[in-house]
Nucleic acid binder design. Structure first.
Length: 281
DNA sequence: CATAGATCCTGTATGC
DNA sequence: TGCATACAGGATCTAT
């Protein structure tokens, strides 16, 4: 389940393999992986050089060096972007292949559950002198972004008429946080995800965001979180932050702070893990 | 407009 | 053993 740290690991791994390279072909092997693409993806991308690998929240994009277009990629739940030498046998769920004019290693999009996708997009002004793909202009800056405006985000969350966990997962408020890191940030805060935003103090919301940044930074330093082979870096290797999780996936195990048994609840059609003692409803 | 819920997908684990 | 069901969940779409 790639969230910000996992996507950043992928971005870091991809950057040296895409920067300056000219796309020679885009082989689409599964239509669902390009379901949001409107025009001909070949026409849009072939013959252009990639400038670098960029990221906001859980979205990646590769801006072209010579025009105002970019290739966007989202890993969804199970997407992988792998660097594969030409001739490497096709991976089981290979959905798309980027070939380059230098005949060097391909970038392959492998995605078991096909929640991920890629598409071309034009770049627009991001409001701070930078460029961002038009398609993801509604995605908020993430807590690791130097231009993340914490005060403004805290105020927006405070005025939300919903539970705090729902707000943390809303990528138009703050991006990059998914189910795992939301639960971890809430555990560190001692807040139950069902707490109403409008009943929290500004300082309390600020704390949750600090913890979110803290836990995602720690996860990034360990190469991200993965429970199985579905999340891997560009070399196919897994991160090992799962050993550091305090709440997520630990139902029935003792809370590291107080010893109470971590509980599991359903929320927004998915599992939430919390400590009944440290995080009362 | 803001918020809540349904929906897409496939491999693995579990229950009877 | 085999079949059915639950589960994992990000972001978009639809409904209220």
């Amino acid at each position: 389940m790639p969230e910000l740290p996992e996507v950043e690991v992928v971005r870091l791994g991809l950057d040296p393999w895409v920067a300056g390279r000219v796309i020679a072909a885009v082989d689409v092997l599964h239509p669902r992986s390009v379901r949001r693409q409107v025009g001909d993806i070949q026409v849009e991308l072939v013959g252009t050089a990639i400038r670098c690998a960029s990221r906001r929240g859980k979205y990646l994009w590769f801006p072209n060096a010579d025009n105002d277009q970019a290739l966007i990629a989202h890993l969804g739940m199970s997407g992988q972007l792998l660097v594969s030498p030409v001739g490497t046998p096709d991976q089981k769920h290979l959905r798309l292949r980027l070939k380059f004019a230098d005949d060097g290693p391909e970038i392959r999009f492998v995605d078991q559950r096909t929640f991920g996708h890629l598409l071309g997009s034009t770049l627009v002004d991001d409001g701070s002198g930078g460029r961002v793909p038009e398609i993801i202009a509604h995605i908020a800056r993430d807590p690791l972004d130097p231009l993340f405006d914490e005060k403004a985000v805290v105020a927006r969350i405070r005025s939300r008429g919903s539970e705090i966990k729902r707000a943390l997962l809303d990528q138009s408020l703050v991006s990059g946080i998914g189910n795992i890191y939301a639960d971890e940030a809430l555990w560190r805060s001692g807040l139950h995800g069902g707490a109403r935003c409008e009943e929290l103090s500004l300082a309390g919301i600020s704390d949750v965001l600090h913890y979110a940044r803290e836990v995602m930074t720690a996860a990034l330093a360990k190469g991200g979180t993965s429970f199985d082979s579905l999340y891997v870096n560009v070399n196919g290797q897994s991160g090992y932050f799962d050993r550091s999780l305090e709440a997520y996936g630990r139902a029935g195990q003792p809370c590291a702070r107080c010893g109470a048994l971590i509980r599991r609840e359903r929320f927004m059609n998915r599992s939430s893990f919390s400590c009944p003692q440290c995080q009362p409803r």
